[in-house]
């Protein structure tokens, strides 16, 4: 249908019928989810809908109880964060996980430092970090040797995203990247998110903010009480419909047929 769909035969990541329980509480019920190359997929849902759990399943932090995890069409087993990273799936968490006392280069290469012999290869790391930031057209960072403690919220978010992109990743998942940012910084981060997709990555954006979702996303996946209410193209739906999907699980003929949730999907 669309240009991007014609380029790519199938989704990079495809989840089918994912179940996940924590003890007696079942958080995810048969969730289907897909993310495509060159697209931003917004993952929306109310608090407790299961967004974070789904993302942690994708990232290998929680093992899935049932269902299929397909990566580039092949079924894969993701047993831990390392497996996900090896596939090229990087998650940028809301708390960013940056060490304040280290500089930008040190943070971007943390745990995966380049070395020559036993000595850290600072030159190569600095060059790669600067190239990555330049490749993302980041203009807000003065020097890659700045300590992260001296950066603003938007700059931190930028560094965290650049860190995820550094490793030739194919899928980048962003957990509420704009939640703590002001207007201008939100705009910068959203532009960055769009550029990631334009560079050929599959981007999954978790957000509560409908303006952000409609500003950058190509698809919207709405979770409702642990079920995937609908995964639709952004251009096919309105603001109000998405809000209904989030709050009631359905909107007209879209979404779960029974709002209380044990029914079939649309």
């Amino acid at each position: 249908m669309t240009a991007s769909e014609n380029q790519v035969p199938g989704p990079v990541i495809e989840l089918r019928g994912i179940d996940k329980s924590f003890g007696p509480v079942q958080v995810l019920h048969g969730v289907d989810f897909e993310a495509h190359v060159g697209e931003v997929t917004a993952l929306v849902g109310d608090n407790g809908a299961g967004k974070s759990t789904l993302v942690k399943c994708i990232g290998g932090i929680h093992p899935i109880d049932a269902g299929d995890y397909l990566f580039e069409g092949r079924p894969v087993h993701v047993g831990g964060p390392r497996d996900a990273a090896d596939l090229g799936v990087e998650i940028v968490y809301q708390d960013l996980a940056l060490a304040d006392n280290l500089d930008i280069v040190q943070n971007m290469f943390l745990g995966r430092e380049k070395k020559s012999g036993i000595v850290l290869d600072e030159y190569t790391m600095e060059e790669l970090a600067a190239e990555t930031l330049a490749g993302l057209s980041v203009r807000t960072v003065k020097s890659v040797r700045q300590q992260v403690s001296s950066l603003s919220g938007g700059q931190r978010q930028t560094v965290a995203i650049a860190k995820a992109v550094l490793w030739n990743s194919k899928v980048v998942i962003l957990d509420e990247p704009t939640a703590a940012l002001g207007v201008a910084q939100t705009q910068q981060v959203l532009e960055l998110v769009r550029r990631l997709a334009d560079k050929g990555l599959a981007v999954v954006l978790i957000s509560h903010n409908m303006n952000d979702v409609f500003a950058v996303s190509d698809r919207i996946a709405a979770l409702y009480l642990g079920r995937m209410a609908a995964q639709v193209k952004t251009r096919d739906v309105t603001h109000a419909q998405v809000v209904e999907l989030i709050t009631a699980g359905r909107s007209g003929d879209l979404g779960l047929q029974q709002a209380n949730g044990n029914g079939a999907k649309a």
């Binding site: 960013l96 996980a97 060490a99 040190q106 745990g111 850290l120």
Partner: peptide, 24 residues
């Protein structure tokens, strides 16, 4: 200053959770 062990000491001291997630 020049080995990854040293770098990881600073990282754990700065943000233990970040260090853990980085695979340290």
């Amino acid at each position: 200053n020049r080995t990854s062990f040293g770098r990881h000491i600073y990282a754990v001291g700065g943000n233990q959770e970040a260090a853990r997630r980085a695979g340290i």
